[in-house]
Nucleic acid binder design. Structure first.
Lengths: 191, 191, 191, 191
DNA sequence: AATGAATGAGCATTCATTCAT
DNA sequence: CATGAATGAATGCTCATTCAT
């Protein structure tokens, strides 16, 4: 199912995102999605084989868009700390600007609906981060920790920041973001 | 619906936990839970008003047991760092020893099924942590950060550790736990 | 799914038979069957796993009842010709007395809905006919024809008679039945 | 909807026949027929008003072709027995050579899809057989049986032969066909 | 004539829950 | 307390058919 452009298809994806985060998976019938998208029930299944595939498509296309943002301008950063900070802040800012998309990722992060295939393809797009990680580990700026942890630590602190800002929106500020990145960096910085 | 002890009741809770993490919520009909628990369908509704209440009961009782463990022996720890480390490591160890329970918490962390009531009651039991946090913030051992972040940071790094060990079980070791706590502590330690 | 007795189950089977022959398979929704049987839609699926199994059950139980009739009093017949005639006439009379059941068999004789399992089990019950066939072939009353054909010939002429009487009900008479059996017998009688 | 020749039309009819006998009516959506025929879904409805008319057209055109074969060379036969034998064997041979077409007839023989109109028109083409029957009944070669039965008997024994050969393809032989015709003839031959 | 995206009524089936026993 | 047959609203999905291009 290639993602050829189609207005109806787009409308369905948008309605799915909105309803899923507002009402949860099992309170979002396909009939309601279709209604919200302004199409017939059959049209939904014309574009997506079934509900599961619809959600996987939404997951993948949303992730693609997010990663597009994270990648942007990384190369402009100077040293490795700045590179990581750039990606980290881009991620947090993206999450703040796209709360629904972020919540959707949270909801389906551990869901059996997101197939291994989808997960793998999403992971592939994160490859550019591997380069950064390698560069970081090879530098003398950070502690001697193993790569798998480095990756999960990055994601973990990002998730933490996002959850925090969701619970306490009044804390959203450039300053606090910088503070959190400091916490992140101090955690692994070489002495 | 008080939690008086009953063998059937226990069997239902146990079956619920197993099925929920194995098959996900919407692939776990109450009929299957009853079957797995070795009771009649009606019996389930005799002990729990409905499916939602069953899950909330499971959530609450499991959380209670977990917190029991975290609280244990905290008072024996010396300074504030040791106290926090004790709770943190107890939490990680509990998660490793109870993978199903941990996965269940993850699955339902953001679920609309867990009522505000349940969430609040669970939170209440975390109160003993507030004391620790206050003690920490008042000490000169850690940076000047605001309390809400401190709390979320603790939970965030715990979750990160758990996810990491779930993805990479071969990395589970006392040593790595200590390493992660160091990362945690360095992130917020006063200079 | 053993055929334990149940009034609702019986009502469903009866409604199925009536509707199937009146309206055909694909114009007989399960909802209509349930309505006609005076039960809820769920009840139908409580007794039969799905529509297909419902039809297979109807097929098998109807066939069982029919064969019961064919078997009756065969042993009273004298020679082999009389035995065969007895079965043949019992079959034709059963078909005339049970037009719906007969039509149902015709409709589903070649249907992919009737599973091989059902067909085989139905066939098993015809075993008593094998004895008769063997006796016939070993006698000197009939021509030297091979057994498989003998069996199909019997069924073929029965079907022919049934079709004929269905098209021309005014021809139904003891006399014509006898005439047809003569035709049958002459076809294979030894010179 | 006249049957003007058209490649797409032919392709649709062919695909219909193949799919119908392979998968049964209710597992053969028009979309699949179109796909198999290599045309767009709309095209099917351009050539046939609806699914029912498509099947009726297939029925009628197939029957026409079959009867063409049965008629061929009847006039060359000598006496009435030979004439009947000629038609009977032609029919059996046609069935063996065109198993899909035969199965299709069997499947739809009692179907509500084949309209009375279609059935009547198909019957009309059988008229040449009436002449043969009349000739037979007026001759002294066969028993005194009434015409309606004579007709159904012919068809019944043909069907029986076809079913037998379908179940036991290894029995297909000129010899067995002759044997079966003998059985047929003996059944009604005058003493 | 041909296309195929769009339609929406219709269907088989599921499942939380009830209640008579 | 326990049972399990019965319920019926709700849902995912199918498919014949239409129609703008």
């Amino acid at each position: 199912m290639t993602a050829e452009y189609s207005e109806k298809r787009e409308a369905i994806l948008k309605a799915t995102l909105n309803l899923l985060v507002e009402r949860g998976f099992h309170d979002t019938p396909t009939s309601l999605i279709a209604k919200e998208a302004g199409v017939a029930t059959g049209t939904l299944f014309h574009h997506f084989k079934n509900k599961e595939e619809l959600i996987n498509a939404l997951y993948l296309e949303t992730k693609r868009k997010m990663i597009e943002v994270l990648k942007k301008d990384v190369h402009l950063a100077g040293n490795i700390e700045e590179k990581i900070k750039h990606v980290w802040k881009s991620a947090v800012q993206w999450g703040i600007m796209h709360p629904k998309e972020y919540q959707f990722f949270q909801q389906f992060a551990n869901s059996p609906f997101i197939s291994k295939l989808t997960r793998d393809e999403a992971l592939n797009q994160f490859e550019f981060i591997n380069d950064i990680i390698e560069e970081a580990l090879n530098s003398d700026r950070i502690k001697n920790i193993y790569p798998e942890f480095f990756m999960d630590y990055f994601e973990g602190l990002f998730t933490m920041a996002m959850n925090h800002f969701r619970k306490h929106p009044e804390k959203i500020s450039e300053e606090n973001m910088d503070m959190m990145f400091d916490v992140y960096w101090n955690g692994i910085a070489a002495d």
